[in-house]
């Protein structure tokens, strides 16, 4: 395969299969049928590596005959002008952020860098396996529609982007089944993903990947509850975490024992419940009365058994 590539790159004129077989003596079988099959396999493998082989229809004495050539500019990486310092920075980034897949290492080698072999003091884990990353990347980078099973339904999705948040990868795109924009948790995609043709869709110009997947704080505010904000008293042991999550502006009052009253969005009561009860008995809703009453009702129903 390398010999075929070298030959097609070196020769200035396109070569027919017959000429290729004459040049690469002993590389292809004697039989025309077997030689064609072997050549097609090599051609396919090279194309899969991102090396396009162009088919030219000849004229003149060879009118109608097909000939092949490879333009090295079509597969060679241009010099991006990376400095050694920039390569080192990329190397450090690859070593620190661990996605599990090996594509980062391969990219680094192509850019002339080396993967770090020593242990890193800080690491961030956002695992995604090789095959899945390759498929999803083809979808979002090359605008290919993806087809997969999700929650028992076959979806055709135009993938706009991928976001890693809080340990999970989310695929955001246009779901043709629902005729609307949807977010899919990648680890919940069932079975294999089929990949459509390049350039199958255009991504909306106003698309914002970060905003497409709401944070927990944003989720709490997205609802139709009668009250938009609840006052929640949080024990000192957990107050720091709540302050980090909702910001200093959410603090209403700090008590001497370290407990803090916060203003927390609660328009989405279901999400509010999930958030509030994560603190079990370390947080209490003080008001408004309607929200407090709802919390007491939830607790009473659950405490009474089902």
């Amino acid at each position: 395969m390398i010999n075929l590539l070298a030959l097609l790159v070196q020769r200035t004129k396109p070569l027919t299969l017959k000429q290729i077989r004459q040049e690469l003596v002993g590389q292809y079988p004697e039989s025309d049928t077997a030689a064609r099959a072997a050549f097609e396999r090599d051609k396919g493998d090279l194309r899969a590596l991102g090396i396009p082989i162009e088919l030219i229809t000849l004229g003149g004495d060879q009118a109608g005959e097909g000939a092949y050539r490879v333009d090295r500019k079509s597969f060679e990486l241009d010099d991006l002008g990376l400095t050694d310092e920039e390569r080192s920075a990329l190397q450090f980034a690859m070593a620190t952020v661990r996605v599990g897949a090996s594509h980062g290492d391969e990219a680094l080698w192509k850019l002339g860098g080396e993967r770090a072999l020593n242990a890193q003091s800080t690491s961030l884990n956002i695992q995604l396996d090789d095959e899945l990353m390759s498929t999803l990347a083809d979808g979002v980078v090359e605008h290919r529609t993806l087809k997969f099973l999700y929650k028992g339904e076959m979806r055709n999705v135009d993938p706009y982007g991928l976001l890693a948040r809080a340990g999970f990868w989310y695929l955001v795109g246009f779901d043709q089944l629902r005729a609307d924009r949807r977010t899919f948790r990648v680890d919940r995609i069932e079975g294999e993903i089929l990949v459509g043709d390049r350039g199958s869709f255009s991504r909306p110009k106003d698309f914002d990947l970060q905003k497409a997947v709401p944070t927990e704080a944003e989720l709490l505010a997205e609802g139709h509850g009668d009250d938009a904000v609840a006052t929640v008293l949080v024990d000192a042991s957990l107050a720091g975490g709540v302050r980090t999550q909702f910001g200093k502006q959410s603090v209403i009052k700090e008590h001497l024992d370290g407990s803090v009253e916060f203003a927390i969005p609660c328009a989405n009561l279901t999400a509010f419940r999930v958030w509030l009860f994560a603190m079990v008995d370390k947080a209490t809703v003080i008001g408004p009365p309607r929200v407090r009453k709802q919390v007491v009702t939830w607790l009473t129903e659950q405490a009474g058994g089902r």
Binding site: E76, L77, A107, G112, L136, A137, E142
Partner: peptide
């Protein structure tokens, strides 16, 4: 010269 970066490599970077 190295091969061009494929979609997955660009994505990873």
């Amino acid at each position: 010269r190295p091969l061009q970066l494929n979609s997955a490599e660009l994505f990873a970077l």
